[in-house]
């Protein structure tokens, strides 16, 4: 049992601490009227990228789905039709869905992706009234056709896909420290004090 004086001191220190806090500056940001700037590699809403020629980068390999610790990604592959080639391989994602309610935004999908197709943008405002609307499918994940980046891997005549090893090699050239440029629907986002806005 502590001494009476010790008890009083303990009480004093406790009450002083709380009182002192009452007069400190509050760190709270008045979102949404005030928006804080994100870290450059903030993990927000996903997007599926394209190549500069408009072809989807995603080859439907499902590596993101298996890398996902939250089982949030569903991919079902399909074969490219010769007259309607969606991606540079034989295979493309016939179905690509991310359940953003399950997603923990860890970015493992991005790291697992061999073609830099799935990336996490800094966008995080996804609130909605219906659960179903959090399942993002290809129509909402894919950037617009003219928003592709990077040259696609070579294709041989007749649409025979090139070796995907080329793409994997490109992957290793991404500057990990800088990360990806923040984009939204393919447009580059610029940094501003009040959050990231479209450039």
């Amino acid at each position: 049992m502590q001494s009476f004086g010790g008890a009083v001191m303990a009480l004093y220190r406790g009450f002083a601490t709380t009182l002192q806090f009452a007069f400190q500056k509050k760190p709270t940001v008045q979102y949404p009227s005030v928006r804080k700037q994100h870290a450059p590699r903030f993990h927000g809403l996903h997007e599926l990228r394209r190549y500069a020629d408009g072809k989807e980068r995603c080859i439907g390999c499902e590596l993101c789905a298996i890398a996902c610790p939250a089982n949030a990604i569903t991919v079902i592959g399909a074969e490219n039709a010769p007259d309607d080639r969606r991606s540079p391989g034989e295979r493309f994602a016939g179905r690509y869905e991310i359940d953003e309610l399950r997603c923990i935004f860890c970015g493992l999908c991005e790291e697992a992706c061999p073609t830099d197709a799935i990336v996490l943008t800094p966008r995080f405002e996804m609130a909605d009234y219906r659960r179903g609307s959090f399942i993002y499918s290809k129509d909402r994940l894919l950037v617009p056709p003219d928003a592709g980046v990077g040259a696609p891997p070579d294709e041989r005549p007749g649409g025979i896909p090139a070796d995907l090893g080329w793409v994997t090699e490109q992957k290793s050239t991404v500057d990990i420290a800088r990360g990806y440029d923040a984009t939204y629907n393919g447009a580059k986002l610029k940094d501003e004090h009040k959050g990231l806005t479209l450039q």
């Binding site: 709380t18 009182l19 806090f21 009452a22 007069f23 400190q24 509050k26 760190p27 709270t28």
Partner: peptide, 10 residues
């Protein structure tokens, strides 16, 4: 309000 201030909130 008082509780929030003491907890560093507005």
């Amino acid at each position: 309000k008082i509780m929030a201030w003491m907890q560093l909130r507005p």
